[in-house]
């Protein structure tokens, strides 16, 4: 229910400038007799569309389409970034990537992060959002506290966490201080737990986004539904379960999409916390790609990895759109087709 326009009075809002612009010819059309006017208005409309979309399309082509096409081209060569690119190897780079143990474990790590992000952040984010949606003292302060990590620069937050988590760092000292010294671990140094440590930091960092989105979604749940439920004698818990969460569905599904894409492209936090180590325990597709490309100058091979990452993201995004978001898209108000 995120900021869904209320449908009925959209046409009247002055914000809808495209609609306003279209309305004039529409009301004028019946009065006009010939097809010439229609033709010129069509042409004008096309010109308008071209005019307004051209800059965005140009940027999209330059910074998205061209690099993607280039990456596909590079991925079929063996190339170290220097000199001419003349050693065509076909699909060798792809076979090499897909049979590489480190890359396949990177893909696994990305999938684990997707699943864990949703399993951890969804209930936690929902609970906090429901809590912060109530009239409690210090509500705005708590909102700021929860959202703060999301605003912090990734690099800064990462470096601080590295300091906190290092052996005999603040985390260990705090555990010692409360008598839990036995629980101290090599948080980032033990291959068996490093990925979970990274997960904790990621949760801390991105929970704020989930809470913010859910809170925004909660604003969209109409007051009268609650009132009706209360009149029927529903408890607070029943109201949340039967009304709030179902009405929050579209927001949750959109957040799930963002979370999934973010998990697939995860780079900066892992790079700073562990660099993909120890012993490749936290390597992700993106850190693997940088390691192979920038550090080892295998630009052809790294491009193949990038194309695979692109492919996986695309497939997952399309599947998610099709199976999860389709219902939301169908229900969403359609852009009004102007008949002329």
């Amino acid at each position: 229910m995120t900021a869904r326009p209320t449908g009925t009075n959209v046409a009247a809002t002055p914000r809808d400038t495209a609609g306003a612009a279209d309305r004039a010819p529409r009301s004028a059309a019946p009065a006009a007799s010939g097809g010439r006017r229609r033709l010129s208005s069509n042409a004008r409309k096309r010109a308008e569309i071209a005019f307004f979309t051209a800059p965005a399309l140009a940027l999209l082509t330059l910074f998205v389409v061209v690099p993607v096409v280039q990456a596909v081209r590079y991925s079929t060569y063996k190339w170290n970034g220097l000199g001419p690119m003349d050693d065509f190897v076909g699909f060798d780079n792809y076979t090499q990537a897909l049979t590489d143990d480190v890359f396949t474990s990177a893909v696994m790590h990305n999938l684990v992060i997707i699943v864990l992000s949703i399993l951890i952040q969804l209930p936690l984010g929902l609970a906090i959002a429901l809590l912060l949606n109530r009239e409690i003292r210090g509500r705005s302060f708590l909102r700021v506290v929860i959202f703060m990590p999301y605003v912090l620069a990734e690099v800064v937050a990462g470096v601080v966490w590295v300091l906190l988590l290092q052996p005999e760092g603040l985390v260990d000292a705090a555990l010692d201080g409360v008598g839990l010294g036995g629980l101290t671990q090599l948080w980032l140094g033990d291959p068996n737990i490093a990925l979970f440590t990274v997960m904790v930091v990621l949760t801390w960092k991105y929970l704020g986004l989930a809470v913010l989105l859910f809170l925004a979604g909660l604003q969209g749940v109409p007051e009268d539904v609650y009132e009706a439920a209360q009149l029927d004698g529903a408890s607070w818990w029943q109201v949340q379960r039967r009304i709030t969460i179902p009405l929050l569905g579209p927001t949750i599904r959109t957040w799930g999409f963002l979370s999934m894409i973010g998990s697939l492209q995860l780079f900066d936090m892992v790079w700073i916390l562990t660099g993909g180590g120890p012993a490749n325990a936290t390597v992700t597709m993106a850190t693997y790609l940088i390691n192979q490309g920038t550090d080892r100058s295998l630009y052809g091979y790294a491009s193949a990895v990038a194309v695979i990452l692109f492919g996986i993201s695309l497939v997952l995004a399309v599947v998610y759109q099709f199976f999860v978001l389709r219902r939301d898209n169908e229900n969403a108000p359609k852009p009004r087709k102007v008949k002329r």
């Binding site: 290092q166 052996p167 090599l186 140094g189 033990d190 291959p191 180590g277 120890p278």
Partner: peptide, 10 residues
Amino acid sequence: DPFNEGFLAT
């Protein structure tokens, strides 16, 4: 085992 604690991430 001659190395510092947590050397894999040091």
